[in-house]
Computed example of a mutant assay.
Amino acid sequence: MRIFVLTGAGISADSGLGTFRDAGGIWDKFDPMKLATPAAFAADPERVHEFYNLRRRDMLAARPNAAHVALGRLGEGLKVDGGALFLCTQNIDDLHERAGSRAVHHMHGRLSRALCSSCRATREWRADLGVTDRCAACGRVGTLRPDVVWFGEMPYGMPEIEEALARSDLFVAIGTSGAVYPAAEFVEIARMMGILTLEFNLGKSANAHLFDESVYGPAIESVPRFVARLLGTGGEGL
């Protein structure tokens, strides 16, 4: 079986990382147009760095939860039977990797990397980032930014995502709002291709009506149960 899993901020909520569009989420507290656009970075890079430095510190302090770990097991388990997992995340944290997932497609980038806005070089960066830091590739100072996809920018690797989705037997969305495009369209594309669709969420997403089946409740409970059933290691139902 080939499974395409899309994860959103909801899967990391039980690790203590905030969601974005729920009541009390990050974009309820902060204006994304002042923090998450190329124009915002050009206008006030220190403010943007301060916001993302705090988020990076939170990410480094967080620990993977049972849902992350279960998806790590799923990836390894599917290989045994000749299947495959394409794990695509909207999240910019590294909790999937730390939970054992070996290949994660970060469509919105990674907070643990820096991107030079001048030469576009990227590099691992887990410390605070600021306007005095120098790009090792081009030597310019003040051009480094978090390697995350901001509003108005294209997600990473859309051709790879579309190819993986077309090859899949099952599409699963976990902890997504169903309101952020193009990820919100994946379930509709899957349905048009005749692929079974399944949603795990705390409550109904904006596109919940497009899923063949929905399971509501904490991901730390429902996702491990689902993975155990798929891999034949126990668990009853979803």
Results as ranks from 00 to 15, higher is better:
D93G: 07
D93E: 10
D93H: 12
D94L: 08
L95R: 10
E97S: 12
E97L: 12
E97P: 00
R98S: 10
A99R: 03
G100L: 13
S101M: 06
R102H: 14
R102I: 08
R102E: 15
A103D: 15
A103W: 13
V104I: 15
H105L: 14
H106P: 01
M107A: 13
H108D: 10
H108E: 06
G109Q: 06
L111R: 03
L111E: 05
L111T: 02
L111I: 15
S112V: 09
S112F: 11
A114P: 05
L115Y: 09
C116F: 04
S117P: 01
C119S: 14
C119I: 13
R120E: 12
A121W: 07
E124R: 14
E124D: 14
W125K: 06
W125L: 05
R126Y: 02
A127H: 14
D128T: 06
L129F: 06
L129K: 03
L129R: 00
L129M: 11
L129Q: 09
G130L: 00
G130R: 08
V131E: 06
V131D: 03
T132V: 01
D133K: 10
D133R: 05
D133F: 04
D133Y: 05
C135G: 05
A136P: 01
A137H: 12
A137W: 03
A137F: 07
A137I: 01
C138E: 12
G139C: 07
G139Y: 06
R140W: 00
R140A: 11
V141I: 12
V141C: 01
G142N: 11
T143K: 14
T143I: 02
R145C: 04
P146E: 11
D147V: 01
D147T: 03
D147G: 03
V148I: 15
V148F: 11
V149Y: 11
V149R: 08
F151Q: 09
F151H: 09
G152C: 07
M154K: 07
P155C: 11
Y156Q: 07
Y156N: 12
Y156I: 11
G157M: 06
M158P: 00
I161L: 14
I161H: 02
E162H: 11
L165F: 03
L165N: 01
L165G: 01
A166M: 05
S168V: 00
S168N: 03
S168H: 01
D169V: 00
L170N: 01
F171Y: 15
F171G: 01
F171M: 04
V172T: 05
V172K: 02
V172G: 09
A173I: 01
A173S: 15
I174E: 05
I174Y: 07
I174V: 14
T176R: 09
T176F: 11
S177V: 04
G178L: 06
A179S: 14
